[in-house]
Amino acid sequence: MTVTSTAVRPPTVVRVRRAVADARALTWRNLLTYVRLPQLVVFSTIQPIMFVLIFRYVFGGAIQPPPGQSYVNFLMPGIFVQSVAFGAVGTGIGLAEDMGKGLIERFRSLPMAQSSVLAGRTTADLARNVFVVFLMAVVGFLVGFRAGTGPLPFLAGVALLLLFGYALSWVFVLVGLGAANAETAQAVAFPTLFPLVFASSAFVPVESMPGWLQAFAANQPVSVTVDAVRALMLGGPTISPVLQSSAWTLGILAVFVPLAARRYRRAI
């Protein structure tokens, strides 16, 4: 016997509205976790604060900033990008933990918009990054960082690096869904992020590196984003680095959002 369907799928408008509501609910839930377990946020701020202090006061004296720039001004855009790059690992860890606790399985058995699990996770981590970058800006100000270009370019720089961090979060969605547990997610993260963050223009001028490394260091996504943020906050030509950074951000999203979504559908 064939059962003929009389079931109705809700109209598209309702589905979209529900997807947004579901993503908001899960964003709220994820942010609440950060409030309940502040150590998660403290951990992702202590490390960059340590870096500010170490580079500003220990290594900074030995690093030659480009002519006409103070090292602390050179450093802070690098610190901002570093914070969101390492922050992306938290996205993977959070998802791996939810999987381990069976929460993802519960969500997948509910009549909710399945897209909201990943959307809610990455949006919450974007909101966390807003807080972290704000905090780092305050720390930077205290150690002498002064952006010379005015509030609008400064905010444009913040927006650019937040988008970059958002794109990186999707890379770690994929890592988190594939990892057996939070430790694995973390273990995968650092060997991939360390070369990107340290072989970059974040802490030292690329020109000071050996030639073979410069080709990589000058063009990889962390460097071009740091360069763009620097140009926006400190002055200098902005168009080329901003375009390059945006291209990386969009490229990463275009590749990793579909991969992550596919991995989620097959997860568990």
Binding site: A21, R29, T33, P111
Partner: peptide, 21 residues
């Protein structure tokens, strides 16, 4: 048991209520 450790019991049920529309 697949419940969120960091939320209260009430918050867990409210979350599911919202997610199930």
């Amino acid at each position: 048991a697949a419940v969120d450790e960091n939320l209260t019991g009430r918050e867990n049920l409210r979350l599911i209520g919202i997610l199930t529309h």
